[in-house]
Design a protein around this nucleic acid. Structure first.
Lengths: 213, 213
DNA sequence: TAGATTGTTAATCGATTAACAATC
DNA sequence: TAGATTGTTAATCGATTAACAATC
C-alpha cells in the first residue's frame, strides 16, 4: 500500500517516461539520463519529472542522473508491468477486429510487453468460434465466467454505444477493475473501477474548434 | 477572433455538452435544460457548465435554464461543426481500415455530422487504387497535393511509429492545422498546429497502474 | 409575486514551476 | 575539488467550486 494517493496527472506521465527510457536503452544503448533529457524527450519540464519520480522513491543520484535500466525496472514495477496483465475485448466489429490485430501483433513482436489480449466476446452467434489472428470469439454470455476463469483484469469495450453500459455492468459485477472504452457514451462505474476513454468523435470535435483562429 | 484565449480544459468539455444536448433533443424531445441537469449528464459540476458556456456568450435565462435547440446550434457554431470539416487518413493498415469503416458508416447514418473523412493515403503500391467502403487509397506522394486540392483540414495518422513524424511534417508543410495521432510516439508540431493523441498502449499502461490497490 | 436558475466574483483547491541545499 | 544534478520546499499559476446578486 502506498502512503500518498498519487494524482492521475502523475500516473499518466509514468508510461511516457517508461517509453522514453525503453527507446533510449534499445536504440542508443543509453545508460544514464538526467531529468532534463528525460523531460525533453517526454515533453515534460525537468522539475516535474523529478517531482513525479520522487513520489515513488529516490531513483537518481545527485550530479549524475538516473540509471536508465534501473529506472526502467522501477517504473515497470510501479505500473504493474512486471507481471502479466490479461485483457479481454468485447465487441468484435470493425474497430474491435483492428484492435485485436494491432495488439496481438505488437505483443508477439515484443515479448516484454506484458499486457496481453487473450479473450474476445461478441453477441452475434454468427461470430462464435471464429478466430481473429489466434484468438477465438466467445459468446457474450460467457463474459463473467471467463473473466473469473482467465483472471482478466482489463476489458476493452468496442460495442455500439447503446450496449456499452450493460457490458460494463456485467464486467464490473464479475470483478473487472479497469476499462478502456471506445463507445461514444459516458459510462458510469462504481468507486474503485478505473475508466479510460478513447472517444474518437470527441477528439475530432475538439480539434475542429481550433480550425479557424 | 475571440477576446479571451479559451483553455483547452474548457474546449474538451464542449463536445461533451453538445452530445448531451443532441441525445436529449433526439431521444426525449427535450426543450429546456438547466446547468444542473446538463452537468449531471456530462459528468461536470453545474457551476463549471455555466462558467464554460459564459466564455462564449449568454446562452441561458435566469430561472429557466438553456433552450436545448439554441444552445446546440451555438455549440455547433463554436466548434465549427456548422460547416463541413474534411479529414484525410494516412496509413490504411488494420487500424486505419477499421477507422475508415467506423467513420464512413457513422457519417452516412448521421447527415448532420459534418466531420467527413474523404481521402485515404498509404505508401504501399499494392494498395493504390483499392477502395475502403467508398474511398480510394492514394499514394502517400499525393498527400500534400490532395490536402490543398481537397481542402483537408485534419489528418488521422495510423502509420507505424517510425513514419509518423515524417508524415506529420509533410502534412503540416501542406497546411494541415489539426492531427489525430494513433502512432505510439511523441510528435512535434509547430505553434498553431493542434495535436490529439489516441495512444492505446499509454492508456492501457495507465490503467495497469491501478490494478493492485 | 415567489421560486428557480443564470452569469459572475471571490475562495479554494491542486498542479506546475522556480529555487536551492544536499551530495554525488 | 568543482561541476552537475537530484530531491524537496516555497512560490506561482491555473482550474474548479462556492456563493450570491441579478433577473426571468
Amino acid at each position: 500500500m502506498r502512503w500518498h494517493k498519487i494524482s492521475d496527472a502523475v500516473v499518466r506521465r509514468l508510461p511516457l517516461y517508461l517509453r522514453v527510457l525503453e527507446e533510449a536503452s534499445r536504440d542508443e544503448d543509453k545508460q544514464l539520463m538526467s531529468s532534463q533529457e528525460l523531460g525533453d524527450r517526454a515533453g515534460v519540464a525537468p522539475a516535474l519529472v523529478r517531482k513525479d519520480l520522487a513520489w515513488f522513491g529516490e531513483f537518481g543520484k545527485q550530479g549524475v542522473g538516473y540509471q536508465v535500466d534501473y529506472l526502467k525496472t522501477e517504473l515497470r514495477r510501479i505500473l504493474n508491468l512486471d507481471r502479466e496483465i490479461r485483457v479481454g475485448l468485447v465487441g468484435v466489429g470493425a474497430l474491435g477486429h483492428a484492435l485485436v490485430r494491432y495488439h496481438r501483433i505488437r505483443s508477439m513482436r515484443n515479448s516484454s510487453f506484458h499486457i496481453n489480449l487473450i479473450a474476445l466476446f461478441d453477441n452475434d452467434p454468427a461470430k462464435f468460434g471464429e478466430h481473429v489472428v489466434d484468438l477465438e470469439i466467445w459468446p457474450l454470455e460467457l463474459l463473467a465466467e471467463k473473466i473469473k476463469a482467465l483472471k482478466l483484469e482489463i476489458i476493452i469495450v468496442t460495442v455500439p454505444a447503446a450496449h456499452a453500459q450493460e457490458v460494463v455492468d456485467l464486467a464490473v459485477a464479475a470483478g473487472i477493475k479497469a476499462i478502456l472504452n471506445f463507445a461514444p457514451v459516458k459510462l458510469t462505474v462504481p468507486e474503485g473501477v478505473h475508466l479510460a476513454n478513447a472517444d474518437l468523435s470527441l477528439e475530432l470535435q475538439r480539434l475542429a474548434y481550433y480550425l479557424n483562429e
